[in-house]
Design a protein around this nucleic acid. Structure first.
Length: 649
RNA sequence: GCCAGUGUAGCUCAGAGGUAGAGCAGCUGAUUUGUAAUCAGCUGGUCGGGGGUUCGACUCCCUCCACUGGCUCCA
């Protein structure tokens, strides 16, 4: 007999060799029907596998992350089975579960798959699912595995096998499809009821651009049709928050083919918003001892030869600017740091003036690949809220911590709670992409790791995400569709001070090399505002929103009174406009709601007579159930100003 | 840059080998209005650019550009 411990601490005895599914059945048939996979001593395993030692057991259903992942991974196998049935000769790469669904990378030879083929594949998958095929696990020797895939002619699986040890190899079979797979899987295909293929994409084999591009098919499945429906509705809702859509509707920014791809143009309302963010940070930086500077948008090529940017990115950048003078070459500024290094180095520096913090809202230009451009979040010309801190090695930690605190403060002030602080380190083995000595890199990496530990910042570690001159601490935030973007960044750099031969005279009267911190709390104004827009669905925090109030006269007889109200509010730094159109009040309210103006002040006969305003708060959006919820009744102007000020703090 | 898709009026979209349509927006007029769309009339498009096939192309083919979703990249 074996002792099985359940998550609630309960212990029950079973015969050795009992499967998790049997155990589930012993508890209730309802559970047995729902359970997808088991967690045995912390390891996720097939339900059918016998348990032969004392163990802790968790029975995972659709409600758990691991349950969903297993279900989706099994769905990927079902997709593969369907593809093999419909397109014989298809070769298979990998087919994992992802955050929402799964994909399979396949090589279909000459066949070019498009979304038009989806219906047919989905139908096939459903047909196969209804056969209730078991997912059966089989341990195979490496030799047998190689033989199987050699006969099948699947070179991708053979390549995957190369990386596996004999004795460690398992096959899973459901229906007519057998796959090399570690598992685990759900018991059978019966529970896969709702299937939707989402998109096709090219994906390089093993993520390597130099290798074959395979066809990646994304899909998602659910146990109930309603779940799929809800999922699709959720995506639709998310698309309404897309900053590209809202940016157009709210007239924040635009693009023009004539100006060029990836070059955002800020409209008046967007500029107002952006300026407010800039002013906020500028003020904060002054408080914290930063000195604003301004540097030009182009610089001599020599500057970037010194910094290393020319060697690293020159060929893939906007190409050099020639002048009438032969041999004279300028580049559009891709980064501000070389300029700031020049500022540091323009005269001898004493340890007494360190840390030196110089800040610039610096606009930079990078030739991002055409397929990469994306609204405001990936552009070719953007403004970094950049600063460079030059300090002694002793000051590094406290400066670093100060910068992290500023960044988290800014994020909080903007209403971002769900960000990840990611330590971006070098590639674990390939060191060819970086400049600088091993020793300096280690120093920089340790500095980041130690400092974040010290302030108790929760971090994740990602390899192969460092800048070419140093490691980074990146603040990652997700957009409406769950895509992750880097906003704020803090980077410790020992390399550029070397390349620019920066020095300070220490207390010992000897020259020393400063350490440099690059940092940008927003990251770039463009990306930040893009992601911010999606987070608040266009309803920006009151203090930064372009128009805070709209004054809506019931008819033009009350225009004078309305304008008087506007003037009075302006005296209290409350900004807005009067809607003097000859429209009904319902119309004015609707238009104002769509513009996401936080407050509507309605004035008519009654208000004029009493010297008051009727206040309506912006509703929850264009939804029926949110309508009519915002009426706050009547106030005096002074009451409204007090209420408003209190909201802003 | 690569794979797949899209491109019709300012916006959202319909249409289609015989020369383009709706709603909203805009303009004009009427309406003076009480918490999410007042009514009427009018204007508006070399159907993304270029090339080809055809008696005829917005429609079919090629190519370029832009955009969308991924991949790779991201100082």
């Amino acid at each position: 007999m074996i002792n099985i411990t359940f998550p609630d601490g309960n212990i029950r005895q079973y015969e050795s060799g009992t499967s998790a599914l049997d155990i589930a059945k012993s508890i209730s048939m309802g559970l047995a029907n729902k359970v997808l996979v088991a967690k045995v001593n912390g390891e996720v395993r097939d339900l059918m596998r016998p348990i032969d030692t004392d163990a802790s057991l968790e029975l995972l259903t659709w409600d758990s992350e691991d349950g969903k992942k297993t279900y989706w991974h099994s769905s990927a196998h079902l997709l593969a089975e369907a593809l093999e049935a419909l397109y014989p000769g298809t070769k298979f790469g990998i087919g994992p579960a992802i955050d929402a669904g799964f994909y399979y990378d396949v090589d279909m030879g000459e066949k070019s798959l498009s979304t038009n083929d989806f219906a047919k594949i989905e139908e096939k998958m459903l047909e196969l699912a209804r056969k209730k095929s078991q997912y059966t696990r089989k341990e195979v020797s490496k030799a047998d595995a190689i033989q199987y895939f050699t006969e099948k002619g699947d070179e991708y699986k053979l390549e995957l096998l190369e990386g596996l040890n004999d004795g460690d190899i398992t096959f899973y079979t459901q229906g007519d499809f057998t796959d090399l797979c570690r598992g685990p899987h759900i018991p059978n295909t019966e529970g896969i009821k709702a299937i939707k293929l989402m998109k096709v994409a090219g994906a390089y084999w093993r993520g390597d651009e130099s290798r074959k591009q395979m066809t990646r098919i994304y899909g998602i499945t659910f146990p109930k049709a309603q779940d799929l429906k809800d999922h699709l509705t959720m995506i639709e809702e998310a698309l309404k928050r897309d900053h590209r859509k809202l940016g157009q509707e709210l007239e924040l920014f635009m693009f023009s083919e004539k100006v060029g791809a990836g070059l955002p143009i800020w409209l008046p309302r967007g500029t107002a918003l952006r300026s407010r963010l800039e002013d906020f940070l500028k003020k904060e930086q002054i408080k914290r001892g930063y000195q604003p500077v301004i540097t030009p948008h182009i610089a001599n090529k020599k500057l970037y030869e010194t910094s290393g940017h020319w060697a690293k990115y020159g060929a893939d950048s906007f190409q050099p600017i020639q002048t009438p003078r032969e041999g004279e070459v300028f580049l559009l500024k891709p980064m501000n740091c070389p300029h700031h290094c020049e500022i540091y180095g323009h005269r001898p520096r004493s340890y007494k003036e360190l840390p030196l913090r110089i800040a610039e809202f610096g606009t930079v230009y990078r030739y991002e690949q055409a397929g990469e451009l994306h609204g405001l979040t990936r552009v070719r010309g953007f403004t970094q809220d950049d600063a460079h801190l030059f300090c002694t090695p002793d000051q590094l930690e406290s400066e670093f911590i100060g910068v992290v605190e500023l960044t988290t403060y800014v994020l909080k002030k903007m209403g971002f709670e769900n960000y990840t602080a990611q330590i971006s380190l070098r590639h674990q083995t390939d060191r060819s992409k970086y400049i600088g000595s091993e020793e300096l890199w280690e120093q920089a990496e340790n500095a980041i790791i130690e400092a974040t530990k010290k302030i108790g910042l929760k971090t994740t570690i990602e390899y192969d995400e460092a800048a070419f001159y140093g490691p980074k601490l990146d603040f990652m935030v997700k957009d409406a569709l769950g895509r992750s973007w880097q906003l704020g960044t803090v980077q410790v750099d020992y390399n550029l001070p070397n390349r620019f031969e920066l020095e300070y005279i220490g207390a010992d009267n000897q020259p020393h090399r400063p350490v440099m911190i690059h940092r940008a709390p927003f990251g770039s104004m463009e990306r930040f505002i893009g992601v911010l827009t999606e987070h608040c669905a266009g309803k920006f925090p009151l203090w930064m929103t372009p128009d805070q109030v709209a004054i809506l006269p019931i008819s033009d007889r009350f225009s004078d009174y309305a304008n008087g109200v506007l003037d009075q509010l302006a005296e209290h730094d409350i900004r807005g406009f009067v809607d003097e159109r000859a429209e009904k009040i319902g119309r004015k309210i609707r238009d104002t709601e769509l513009k996401r103006v936080p407050f509507m002040l309605i004035v008519g006969e009654k208000e004029v007579a009493e010297g008051r305003i009727s206040v309506r708060k912006q509703g929850g959006g264009d939804k029926e159930e949110d309508k009519g919820k915002g009426d706050m009744g009547s106030m005096t102007i002074a009451e409204f100003v007090a209420y408003f000020k209190n909201l802003i703090q």
